[in-house]
Structures are given as structure tokens and as C-alpha cells.
Amino acid sequence: MTPAVNVDRRHVSVESFDRYLASEVPVVLPIRGTPAVSVFVRPAKPELGLRIEVDPDTQAPVTGLNNIVARVADHEGQHYLEVVVVAAALFRDAYPVLCSMADRIQTEGMKPAHALRETLGQLASLLREPESISQEREIGLFGELLTLGGLAASVGSSAAVGAWRGPQGEEHDFGLPAADVEVKTTIGERRAHWIDSLTQLQPTTNRPLWLVSHQLTAAGTGFGKTLPELIDEVGSTLHSTIRDDFDAKLSAAGWSATYAQRLTSRWERRTESAAFEVDEQFPRLVPDALQRAGLSIARLIQVRYRVDLDGIASPVTIPAVIVAALGS
């Protein structure tokens, strides 16, 4: 995999690129250099592509990949070679690779066809569909679906699926009118969870933030559920008008129906699920607290830590919608 590209001068940062994706509007991002190169996004198609100015006699090669195509296009009388990713779930990962292709052409002097061959080798491994998902993702998705199922039974399936924002890369997994919910799931003997950033446990609105903790264990034959079974169970309760939205969010979360036969592990709750209000007393690392302590966070570009909630009592009074989010 290509290392992160230099985003200081030549390329839009990955964070800014994420905001462009979230806006869901077409955009063209020029990359300074010669020949003229730009990145474009067409959310409605969907397409993410690299557009390179080329000679009129340039022929587009066959990529041999399902999720990426190469073509020659004319724009305002100029000929361009376009390398286009057509799977929206891969846009974020493909963007730095396309930027590296631009670097090969503009800073290393490679011919576009040569740069394309070099880049396709990397994209082939990126765009090749994996045979399954990691156990960490399996467990995480299982927990989110437990919460989704509980919320659907309480607030209605349309509202619950609409509130499910984790697959879209939002800071918190569910955004409800009365609260935001972060879902954490573990198969460990202790109720300990990984927190993936300094902002994951920081409220992003005036609504309170709750952490819902699911603790699972392997179940014997005839007990518990597999992830595919839970997906089918939750999906069967949804109205047909929102099933497409549910399927799209499953795909964005990394799920493919082709994984179903391989995911045979059965899971059940090790303990009852628990909810914790993420307030000033909750154990967490957030920017405001670190800054009040006099610590500079400007150079902390990646922070991941683990919180042990074993023995911490849930609040005596829990809002009804958070009780529903426990998915009991």
C-alpha cells in the first residue's frame, strides 16, 4: 500500500477530502504541476477519478478490474486519460493511491501509461474484494446491529436506520434527537474497549453522549447467532422502503453477502449490555481536558487507547431510548 501522500502543498488532505465526500456534491480538485492533472468526484454516479491531460492519440488501456476503469475523455477541446474508481465504499482508500499516480506523472516524469500500470498494481490489491472481514469488524458490526435492532423496536425502523451513522464515518455511531450513542463491543472477559481518537468520546452537539457497551462470548451449537443471522433478523423487521438504505449502510460498514458462508462463529451476550453517560467523570482523553492540563495536542496525529469499564456502575436513571439502544 502506498504511504500517505504529501498533503501540505500538492494535494488536498484526506480530512478535507472526507468533507468533500460528505457534502455529496460534484467537485474537481486540481493538482499543481505539468501536465494538467486533477481529481474529480461525481457522487451521483458514483465515480472518483484522476484526470490527466494527454495527447489526442492516447488509447485507454484495459484495467482488468471490476471496480476501476480507464477511459479517454474530451473536456473543452482537450483530451484526458481518466482513471476512475466506481465503488463508493473504496473512495477514501483509493484517493491517496490516485494522488501517488499524479506524483509519478508530475514529479517523477513518468508517462501516464507507465504511471497507470504502476498504480494499477497497487489498486488491484486495494480493490480486490477480501474473502471475509476481520473478527474485530465482525464483532463491532454485531454490536451495532444489536443496538439498531433495539432502537428499531422502540423508535421505529425508519428512524433507527436513519440514525445509524457509523458506516458513514461520523464521529458517533448513532445520532438520535435526544442523544448521540457510541457503540462498543468486546469479546474479552473484562468490559474494556478501544477508543480510536481523541474526539470519539467528545460530544459533537448539545445533545448528551452515551456509550453502549456490549460484551459477547462464543456460543455453542444451537445458541446465540452468527453475524449473517443477525443481519437477516434485523433486516426482516425493516419496511421495504428503507431496506435499500440499510443494505447501503451495511456495505459501507464493510459487509458483503459473499462473506456469509465463512462467518460461522456464533455469539451471545457474556453479560447484560450496559450504558454509560460520557460526562466529566467518564474516563476519557479529549482535546479540551488535555488543553486544560497544559498539554499541546497539535502534534498528536493519532491516538488510540483502551478504557476498562468493569465495575463502573451504570446510572440509576437511563433514558428510555438508551435502554432501547442496549438491544436487550
Score class of each variant (00 low, 15 high):
K184L: 06
K184V: 07
T185N: 06
I187P: 01
G188L: 02
R191F: 01
H193F: 14
H193D: 05
W194I: 04
D196R: 15
L198Y: 03
T199M: 05
Q200K: 11
T204S: 14
R207V: 01
L209K: 06
L209R: 05
W210Y: 13
W210C: 03
W210L: 03
L211P: 02
V212W: 02
V212G: 05
V212I: 10
Q215G: 02
Q215V: 02
Q215M: 03
L216T: 00
T217N: 01
A218T: 12
A218H: 03
A219D: 03
G220A: 14
G220I: 06
G220Y: 04
T221E: 10
T221D: 10
T221A: 13
F223I: 02
F223R: 13
G224K: 06
T226W: 02
E229Q: 14
I231T: 08
E233R: 15
G235A: 13
G235Q: 11
L238N: 00
H239D: 15
H239R: 14
S240L: 10
T241M: 09
T241F: 08
I242E: 15
R243Q: 12
R243I: 06
R243D: 08
D244Y: 07
D245K: 15
D245V: 12
F246D: 05
F246Q: 10
F246E: 07
D247W: 07
S251T: 14
S251G: 07
A252W: 02
A253G: 12
G254Q: 03
W255S: 09
